[in-house]
Simulated scan of single mutants.
Amino acid sequence: MVRDMVDEGGNWDWHRLLQLVPKESLEHIASIHPPYDSLGEDRPQWRWEPNRQFSSQSAYMFLNTVMTVGQRDIWKRIWKLHVPQRVRVFAWLSFHERLLTNVERVKRHCAAMDLCEICMNGSENIDHVLRLCIAAAGIWRRIVPHALREIFFNLLFRDWLTRNLFDSTFVRSDED
């Protein structure tokens, strides 16, 4: 039971969870409030059916409507990358803007402000973390050839990520 993973103080029992759940899943668990007795019995529900019961048809409809043809292509391309599995998962989560940034924490009521704690200048979304924050931008300026910087920093996030993942000429040059 999920309720068994909560300590006496009503918080997640991280010691116990670490023994049972992969570390990669803990960030997702951290974004979910622990169950409280006042909320009623703990039971699984399927959010894409009005009666909250899972059906293959609703799963198929959800996947078919949410994932456009372009996204299916990206999905296939990401999972065919010759990189460690954790890099593929990171790329997939980044593309879908599902990393637990401060913007996501605020949406889930786990943080009060979405401000970037590194630069204190702008909302900490995935684009900010990977490209626009002064810390990230400083690294990119050392790697990206001067002639490509304008397009590099002005592309829409998903276009930028796609080019970085699949266009090897995007940041490479004959420069040191």
Results as ranks from 00 to 15, higher is better:
H128L: 09
I151G: 09
M120N: 05
C116W: 02
K76E: 09
L165M: 04
I139M: 10
V66I: 14
C110M: 04
T162P: 02
R43E: 11
S123E: 11
A30V: 01
C116G: 02
K23I: 06
W12D: 12
R52V: 05
F95A: 11
V89C: 05
S94Q: 02
P34Q: 07
D167C: 01
H33N: 15
I29D: 09
R149Q: 15
F157N: 01
C133R: 00
M120V: 08
R16Y: 10
D114N: 08
K107P: 15
G9Q: 12
E49N: 11
F54N: 15
N51P: 00
R98W: 02
F95H: 08
M61E: 14
E24Q: 10
R16S: 10
F152L: 00
K80D: 08
R141Y: 08
P34D: 07
S173P: 03
T68Q: 14
G70K: 12
D159A: 15
E24K: 04
S38I: 09
E124I: 00
M5E: 13
V144K: 01
I143S: 03
D42T: 11
Y60S: 06
R142P: 01
F170C: 10
E150T: 03
A137Q: 05
P35K: 05
M1F: 08
R3N: 12
N102I: 02
C116Y: 01
L130Y: 02
S123A: 13
L148W: 01
M113L: 13
S56R: 05
N51A: 05
C133G: 11
Q71D: 11
H28D: 13
P22K: 04
M113W: 06
G10I: 09
D7W: 13
N154R: 06
A30D: 10
V21P: 01
F54G: 07
A135C: 10
H109S: 07
R131Y: 05
A59N: 13
G138A: 00
V89N: 15
N51R: 01
D7H: 09
P35T: 03
L161T: 05
R16I: 03
C110A: 07
W46P: 13
N121Q: 09
R141K: 11
C110N: 06
V103N: 08
V2S: 02
H28Q: 12
V103H: 14
M120R: 15
F62V: 11
L18W: 14
I29M: 10
W92Q: 08
N51C: 01
S38C: 07
F95S: 14
K107F: 14
L165A: 00
R47P: 13
A137W: 03
L115V: 08
S58Y: 06
P22E: 04
S55Q: 14
S58T: 12
R105V: 15
P145M: 00
S25V: 07
A30E: 11
R86Q: 08
I32K: 09
V6N: 15
I139S: 02
G138W: 00
V171A: 03
K80Y: 04
R149M: 14
A136Y: 06
E117G: 03
A91W: 07
N102M: 14
K76I: 07
C119D: 12
R3Q: 08
V129M: 01
